[in-house]
Nucleic acid binder design. Structure first.
Lengths: 346, 346
DNA sequence: TATCAGCACTCCAAGCAGATGAGCGCCAAG
DNA sequence: CTTGGCGCTCATCTGCTTGGAGTGCTGATA
């Protein structure tokens, strides 16, 4: 039995055109159709032999006896990893992306929203952008407002534009003046440092210097710790879900519903996207590779975006496995770069 | 030809059970089926005669020659307006709603989210809650932070929990101290007043007393006006869209896509919901009554929710026209009241 | 030994015919 | 006014047939 090592040039070329063909018109591809491809000068019979080999290797399979062949997940994988010829982003789309991101200057949230919208528009699939990690962002300003019932509204601003707010409960009652003072203290000492380092420092201070600090400081540090101790900035912006309804492979209500529910639950998607934070450049999950049942029939193309060379979030595109990878990959790539640039507080 | 005046008790009762029956099992209802209803002691033939009358009046119609009858929009309307016997909210669901809203104490946004989620869970349809109008809310605290490029980040807190932020551009460069001063001024003068009245006052001040104010005040007032001049707090929280995918009447992709797109565009839905702000109590739009093509096959059941006897927002349920109105109406009603109560800063 | 033409086979999709059954309208009798 | 009965209309379901696409295999050819 052959193994993939033995795949010769010709077989690979055949696989490539088969996948391309299938992506183009969604029909199983038969030997006859392939034989008509310019660049392939073989009779259907020969092609059938090759296809039989490819099937044995698990790269393609036929839905039923007398249908053409369709790429399997491993087939797609081989295709995107080594056979794909990436097309550069068309000038029109590039224009669309750059101006789209440039003109929505107002507010960070909007930027992410546009990025996601642009991704979905340009690919005709669903676009997704995770919110930038606050951990890495720098604390710009923090503010406490007293509410009723020992609750405090904490507002803090990171980097230049992102506003976070959170309500915390305290045992002690704080006067507005005390809160003001606390905020002043924190702002003077910690402004400009990253949220995660602030939290770490604050914690250290709390544990080591407890005796040295006066009560006010202890309170301040205490509140600050509570305020910044949120692990749950796990959220993302999604656009163009409705685009996915156009694809016949997702048109079973059952499947589509699971997919949309996954979008709503968020954690699954977030978890998947988080995996890409560590890797550089575009990453692709094809079908079941994502490990989520809802994405069985989908592929996810992602890329992390960076501010000051630090990965702060991930964006990507979600669509059917049968997608035009050679176009989508560069789209995702440039969008990530453009978004990073747009977010950079220069 | 008869008109609706002449509809006697019996016809109405027939209509009522027909609608109930249709709502229950989604199949066109025939004369035979109706004749078996306890409470109707008529032969199928007689019922057919009555149904012919009802059809002539445009209250029901049959999808094709030999199918049963289905209520038309006007049929539903009559049913909802005068025939419906509202069922009180079951104790289980009431429990679910009350504790659901009580336990999510943290933050205003979350409350709305839970309300919407609860509505969708309890009705198995889509729940929607508009964000409370900021206009009416009282200004609690306002804060300005300088950004780069003559931009100012405005953060203001209304009532107890709602945090708004906005970026405005200014011609003049303001120092942090100036901004601080401005905020102090505004907070001391205007805190506790409603946003709309603050804006009005600020505007008046700007126009009349320009000469009397020192430059700092003018700046303050100017910025404040810009900051609060946002008409676009038009947003809502939506839950359980996926529930809608279960309904066969919405299972055509085409239709469903339009519906979901309408949800994404928001303005249409907002406009529809806004209509209900003026009316007291539950309001219902059946099918085409809403005036939006996307909602052709849907009904919307809404109720405004109030804080301190002032309407601040609207919530509701969106589902197929064939919904259990007698249950949904009280659900919406109760939820509106509970949400109002939960929002009340007592 | 690789390529290819030909053939038998499989299976899906589309179309057609007949059967079934739900439900109506109309009519005439009570 | 009510009711039973009759004939009629459709939609749905089933089984059947046909056409076409595509495969695997075999044996011939260079």
């Amino acid at each position: 039995m052959k193994n993939s090592q033995e795949l010769n040039e010709r077989s690979l070329y055949l696989l490539k055109t088969l996948v391309e063909r299938y992506i183009q018109d969604g029909q199983p591809v038969g030997s006859r159709a392939l034989s008509k491809d310019p660049g392939i000068h073989l009779s259907p019979a020969t092609i059938r032999n090759v296809m039989a080999d490819l099937e044995e290797l698990g790269l393609i399979h036929s839905p039923h006896t007398s249908a053409g062949r369709v790429p399997t997940v491993t087939g797609y994988r081989l295709f995107v990893d080594s056979l794909l010829t990436v097309k550069p982003v068309g000038s029109f789309e590039l224009e669309q992306l750059t101006t789209g991101l440039a003109t929505t200057g107002k507010g960070n949230e909007n930027l992410l929203q546009s990025a996601s919208k642009l991704l979905s528009d340009v690919t005709k699939m669903a676009g997704v952008v995770t919110l930038p990690k606050t951990e890495i962002a720098c604390l710009n300003h923090i503010e406490f407002l007293p509410l009723s019932n020992n609750r405090i509204l904490v507002i803090y601003v990171t980097d230049e534009q992102q506003v976070h707010n959170k309500i915390i409960h305290t045992d002690k009652v704080f006067s507005p003046a005390e809160l003001q003072q606390t905020a002043n203290y924190l702002n003077s000492v910690y402004a400009g440092r990253s949220v995660s380092s602030v939290r770490a420092s604050v914690l250290a201070e709390l544990e080591s210097d407890r005796e040295l600090l006066n009560q006010g400081m202890v309170d301040a540090v205490n509140i600050a710790h509570r305020a910044l101790d949120q692990k749950s900035d796990e959220d993302y912006v999604l656009s163009g879900q409705t685009n996915l309804m156009e694809f016949s492979e997702l048109s079973e209500m059952e499947r589509l519903k699971k997919l949309f529910e996954a979008f709503n639950h968020k954690q699954g998607v977030i978890h998947l996207l988080d995996k890409c934070q560590t890797t550089e450049g575009v990453q692709i999950f094809i079908g079941e590779e994502s490990g989520y049942q809802a994405f069985e029939q989908c592929s996810v193309v992602t890329a992390p975006y960076t501010v000051n060379d630090q990965v702060v979030g991930v964006l990507g595109v979600i669509g059917p496995t049968r997608m035009a990878y050679e176009k989508v990959i560069p789209y995702v790539d440039v969008t990530a770069k453009l978004l990073g640039a747009a977010l950079n507080p220069k």
